[in-house]
Design a protein around this nucleic acid. Structure first.
Length: 401
DNA sequence: CACCGTTCAGTTGAACTAAGCAACGGAATTCGG
DNA sequence: GAATTCCGTTGCTTAGTTCAACTGAACGGTGGA
């Protein structure tokens, strides 16, 4: 046994790896070359350029579906501006925050606290008035010497839908209280209609400039994939047609480049694992399935206990495939809670949790009226049945059932 | 048959509560002279 | 007598609860053709 394993590792090491730089296919990689986004880069550069003369750049708003390069372009441009400002000895600070991150920046208090932490000020997780945290933050940035601050708020729509637009109002208003520092905001949103239901005052001050990121089409995705695969893989390991297929698949999903890249990466990993010398088209099919499974599993695993119990109840009740409703789930949920030793939440809360699970896409919940038999959410499973056993297993493990 | 009021089973919004935390200020304790 | 520690109070955030208004189509009754 031992011998066999060492053979295996030896084998593994002597084999030529397919990847040379896997990072190039990972989410947070910023390439030196962003195809088909020249227009946006130019615009954003124009908008931010005044920063290099120590003038406050306009606030910007970036729209576009996920995986259309919003984060990538802003990261690319801002880091260039930053580098240049260093050379010119301009005091410029760039702050990136993803508002979607739970427990980090998903409320007004936490957002400002996190910003303050970026300036090396300790802020307690709770206990202070939000007003106070603003003061701490302002004090931290408004130190001696003229300086600029560019604040990038990613997935800003998530924040606003949760806590309202008062946060943005306060942020835009902060500038008037600053003596030495000026604050520009770059908002990034996946939701194209986001600003429609924003207070007009906030809307006008926040989106002085707007950048739209249209989805990539299949041809453009191919360019992106080629570019990146050149960095990521050894030469000639990608079979003809693989790139096309990846691109086609992602183009179907509103031109999400992130998905295309992930698909290619996972296909590469699968190929490598199966000992194949090249990445073939069949690996993409495997990758597609694996990604689906992994992301769902990951979401499930990182859910809080109560959500997990709720999901488990839904899976169990739904087992025989028929339509199910909130009441059924809640009854079952209460029983499970007893088994697990968890305090059952009220139905009100479960209703919200079901809505959250729906947002994640794990289940589909639709409010239906059943005439005089009342009104409820009709729930069905939103994932392929092949991944169900795995999810159930994960849940049981997580809940100690 | 078309129309209309009733009814049900949750949904949804808002106000409220408990748990945790930090800051503040006064009381109690310690300490050095 | 000053410095330090302790402790209770107040006020904050946040997750979850309680309360109550609201929802919307099927049901079943009514009247008209």
């Amino acid at each position: 046994m031992k011998k066999g394993l060492s053979n295996f590792f030896e084998n593994y090491l002597t084999k030529n790896p397919l990847f040379i730089n896997k990072k190039a296919l990972q989410g947070n990689f910023t390439p030196e070359n962003i195809p088909h986004r020249d227009e946006q880069i130019k615009q954003l550069a124009n908008i931010l350029a005044p920063a290099l003369r120590l003038e406050k750049p306009s606030n910007v708003f970036c729209y576009g579906k996920s995986g259309t390069g919003k984060t990538c372009v802003t990261d690319y441009v801002t880091s260039q501006v930053y580098d240049l400002s260093k050379k010119k000895k301009i005091d410029l600070k760039i702050c990136y925050l993803n508002c979607k991150l739970k427990k980090i920046a998903d409320t007004e208090y936490r957002l400002i606290a996190e910003l303050a932490r970026n300036f090396n000020v300790e802020v307690p997780a709770t206990g202070l008035p939000t007003e106070e945290v603003y003061k701490i933050f302002v004090k931290a940035i408004d130190t001696k010497g003229k300086k600029l601050l560019i604040l990038i708020l990613d997935e800003i729509d998530q924040l606003v839908s949760k806590v309202g637009d008062g946060v943005l109002y306060n942020l835009t208003r902060i500038n008037s209280g600053l003596k030495n520092c000026e604050l520009s905001i770059i908002g990034i949103s996946n939701d194209l209609l986001f600003t429609d239901n924003l207070d007009p005052r906030i809307k006008s001050s926040l989106s002085e400039e707007e950048l739209v990121f249209p989805p990539y089409n299949a041809i453009q995705l191919q360019d992106i994939l080629r570019e990146r695969s050149k960095i990521a893989f050894r030469a000639n390991v990608v079979e003809e047609g693989v790139i096309q297929k990846c691109a086609a698949y992602a183009a179907r999903e509103h031109g999400d480049a992130r998905r295309a890249l992930e698909l290619l990466r996972v296909a590469g990993e699968l190929a490598e694992r199966s000992g194949s010398e090249i990445i073939q088209i069949r690996h993409i099919d495997g990758a597609e399935e694996k990604i689906e499974k992994d992301t769902v599993l990951d979401v499930v695993r990182t859910q809080p206990k109560q959500s997990q119990v709720t999901l488990y109840s839904i899976l169990k009740v739904c087992n025989n495939g028929k339509q199910i409703f909130t009441g059924d789930v809640y009854d079952f949920y209460k029983n499970i809670c007893k088994d697990v030793g968890l305090k059952p939440l009220t139905q009100r809360r479960i209703s919200d949790i079901i809505a959250e699970l729906d947002m994640f896409g794990i289940i589909n919940a639709r409010v239906v009226s059943k005439g005089r038999y009342g009104r409820t959410k009709e729930i069905s499973i939103g994932i392929p049945s092949s991944t169900m056993p795995k999810i159930e297993e994960t849940l049981q493990e997580g809940l100690g059932l």
